[in-house]
């Protein structure tokens, strides 16, 4: 019984830790990187296919 509670405790702690890590660090960083990547791809396409016209 005692052992189960402690394993549940670490499990819970692990879930929270991952949740915070994902929402505060990983996903915002991924989002920023992907926007930069998007910009980079457009930039490269300008070099390959010419600058944007109007």
């Amino acid at each position: 019984m005692n052992q189960q509670t402690s394993s549940t405790g670490t499990e819970k702690k692990g879930e929270w830790k991952l949740f915070i890590f994902l929402t505060v660090f990983l996903f915002p960083i991924l989002a920023t990187v992907s926007v930069f990547g998007y910009g980079f791809v457009i930039w490269m396409s300008h070099i390959l296919f010419g600058l944007p016209t109007h």
Partner: peptide
């Protein structure tokens, strides 16, 4: 324009 702006930022 947003996408061109992002390209400018990357550049």
């Amino acid at each position: 324009k947003w996408s061109d702006k992002m390209a400018a930022k990357a550049r």
